[in-house]
Design a protein around this nucleic acid. Sequence first.
DNA 1: ATAACTCCATACCTTAGGGTATGGTGACGG
DNA 2: CCGTCACCATACCCTAAGGTATGGAGTTAT
Lengths: 187, 187
Amino acid sequence: MTASASSRLSIEDWTERALALVMDEGVGAIKINRLCKELGVTKGSFYWHFADLDALLEAIAERWCAETRTLLGSLSALDDLPPLERIRAMALRLIDGPSFSVERALREWARSDAKVAAMIVESDQFVFELVQAALVDLGHTPEGARMRAGLLVYAGIGFAHGQNSLPQPTADDIEDLVAFLAGEAAR
Amino acid sequence: MTASASSRLSIEDWTERALALVMDEGVGAIKINRLCKELGVTKGSFYWHFADLDALLEAIAERWCAETRTLLGSLSALDDLPPLERIRAMALRLIDGPSFSVERALREWARSDAKVAAMIVESDQFVFELVQAALVDLGHTPEGARMRAGLLVYAGIGFAHGQNSLPQPTADDIEDLVAFLAGEAAR
DNA sequence: ATAACTCCATACCTTAGGGTATGGTGACGG
DNA sequence: CCGTCACCATACCCTAAGGTATGGAGTTAT
């Protein structure tokens, strides 16, 4: 459906569908037969494109890593914004509800795929350093900025993994949070 | 080995071993044959004690919930400590490395077991309210305390799920963190 | 002592899912 | 027009794992 209109499938058709599956049902949901059914083919097709399941997993890991890397690159555009805006943008990104299941799926995946794990580390690092730099721009010491940025990033990760245990923060709450983290700058 | 010396097994022997398995390998690692081998029996024994796998899962969920509830009860002893000590205790608890895999296993488990999920929510809530109360005792407004406590608890959850993406905080870092969260009390 | 009950072993069934072998069909170059 | 190759269908095998049926051995009560 989302794939190309051609009756023949390409590698990209497979990785695209498989990636979508990983995102909203986890890597454990990838079954060859199921994928085939969703793509309207049978296993004969799959094993022509890929040697085995691991080959498919590796392919979609590669693809996801590439996509994520370009996404991080595009995020560098935030550098032009004022520091507080940068922090706010990251905080809002961390609170984005629909992406929670994706976040969980990715970290679960990372536990069985080194490439994915490395990419996630890189991604976390990226956000962390972005926030830290913004805090330094606001006049914080590197150490103070480090602690605050770490707190925000880890809270973001935790937010995706907590099962709505605590009341969900509103937009106003985020404002308070950003103000708190950015506060008492020149101490 | 850890079970009773008797040659016959009890329900507790099964739930104990299974719970240990869940903790350090996740709920997905529970296989009937494997459990039997570890306990030195065969499936005939398992299916005498339990109707099926779900019955076993339910039993260990029940057991874990009970154990966790008493653990939370014992944690109420912290109420006598000064507020800052209470927060510090919770912060250190959240950073406890060896329990990370347990934390992950539990939340994964919670996604397929409502009882476990509810217990985790209760547990998170407990820690959250404890920290929040301590912050209020320090002179914070309920709203300020709420935000700070939420930040700490979520960061703790995230810390267990991040794959060492960011540099691990030292004991000194925790001190700074607690001081930061508790800081600027009477504003 | 023996009947009854508890706990467990053995053998077997069934399903899901990864993987393989082989043949067929459409498109395209020669 | 025909062969070749890319792509796929069909049929099959193998293993892991949950589940069942049945019988046997140890224990306990009467």
